[in-house]
Write a protein that binds this DNA or RNA. Structure first.
Lengths: 213, 213
DNA sequence: ATTAATTTAAAACACTCGTTTAAATTAAAC
DNA sequence: GTTTAATTTAAACGAGTGTTTTAAATTAAT
């Protein structure tokens, strides 16, 4: 009786781990189904195709994270004073870390999936995210722009994409970087430590005055 | 008579474009050889394997860029005053742009390849780069560290990788971003303009004081 | 208890992949 | 000009991919 949705969940759980670790195209359905201990054909039965499985894996996180992030940012703006850039970025940390309650290593997996998705796929995931979660993204962009009014709109466009690159690249290779950092400096960082490291970097970059030339 | 090294070059030229556009594992040898108009088996004949072809593609750029970058940075340190972070990053701009003289779109292709290499492969490229060009990387890292002595070594490790992410992601999607910027803000940037935009962002992020907590 | 719908299972399909083989061709050396 | 070496070619190999099919088993509904 539990078998109905159990198979679906087993597939999603196994898939997200492997996708995050090895990337989407490097992870075969056979590897997923053997880890999940389900039949190969059940992926196509429950999800239709590998592409839709990838979207389902991401949606399971985005459906939780995006509303939580929006709420956190809107709550920040109920305060009388203008929120700083660091405050805005930091407001996303709790929604991110709460994903660890959703599933073990949820935060790490989600961020790595996001990074992989943006780098690997040529568009179908980017399209999926912007069309399904565009309003939440708007909330974030407007919030950042308001807190750095000295940055022209066009310049902010570029800097937010620099920021996207910073976070996405870092998360996609977070495991590898952590291994190096551990070997080289004896540092043992969890995902939260890396997030807290990257926030000041991004906030400083986004708000640095434009060169007068 | 020109056929000898011609085939090798045709393969490299076709491969680097495709690798930069679609990634390494997404690019088949059959696609490369058909674009290069050479026989499929000639890849294995001239390079041994796909893995070694990837390394050869990258080496062709690194052999030019790395010494040029090292020289530029060392020249900077002959001046009596300590070079600023922006000066150090800017010193890399010319060696980077000079790659456009090497091959059309050389700068963009090189940066995209670098990013793909760091994200995709689990280690063999990272190993290849650090063992073959480690001295040049050291020159750069030491130079940056000296100009931001308030940043601990381990923290600098992370920030330099944030920086790598910023530049690599930006360059990978520079064409698309430029199109949007042109349509949205009437801006028409070339690759150099984008590089000049990203330098203040990265310099600010790398040198921002570490949170005392 | 019987029927109907859902879910699982095993096998095959139709590709694509990197690599290898062996013959044909071209270039170089003597 | 003949022999030797280097290069190019076409074809096949073996392994891996996502997907589909067909049948069996399980579950739910009548």
């Amino acid at each position: 009786m539990a078998s109905r949705s159990d198979t679906k969940t087993r597939i999603l759980d196994a898939a997200e781990k492997l996708f995050a670790e090895r990337g989407f195209s490097e992870t075969s359905l056979r590897l997923i189904t053997s880890k999940a201990e389900v039949n190969l054909a059940s992926v196509n039965y429950h999800f239709g195709s590998k592409k839709e499985l990838i979207r389902a894996v991401l949606a399971r996180y985005l459906d939780v994270f995006m509303p939580a992030a929006s709420t956190a940012i809107k709550r920040l703006h109920t305060a009388p004073s203008q929120a700083s850039l660091e405050e805005i970025f930091s407001a996303l940390v709790d929604p991110l870390l709460d994903l660890n309650d959703l599933r073990t290593e949820g935060t790490t997996i989600f961020l790595q999936l996001l990074g992989r998705g943006y780098i690997e796929s040529q568009g179908h995931l980017r399209w999926f995210i912007t069309t399904h979660y565009g309003q939440h993204l708007d909330t974030f962009v407007k919030s950042v722009s308001a807190s750095a009014p000295h940055i022209p709109q066009a310049e902010m466009f570029w800097r937010l994409h620099f920021t996207l690159g910073t976070i996405v690249f870092t998360m996609a290779s977070a495991d590898a970087l952590n291994d190096i950092a551990a070997a080289e400096f004896g540092e043992h960082n969890d995902i939260e430590a890396v997030i807290r490291k990257v926030i000041p970097y991004m906030a400083a970059g986004v708000s640095v005055p434009v060169a007068s030339k």
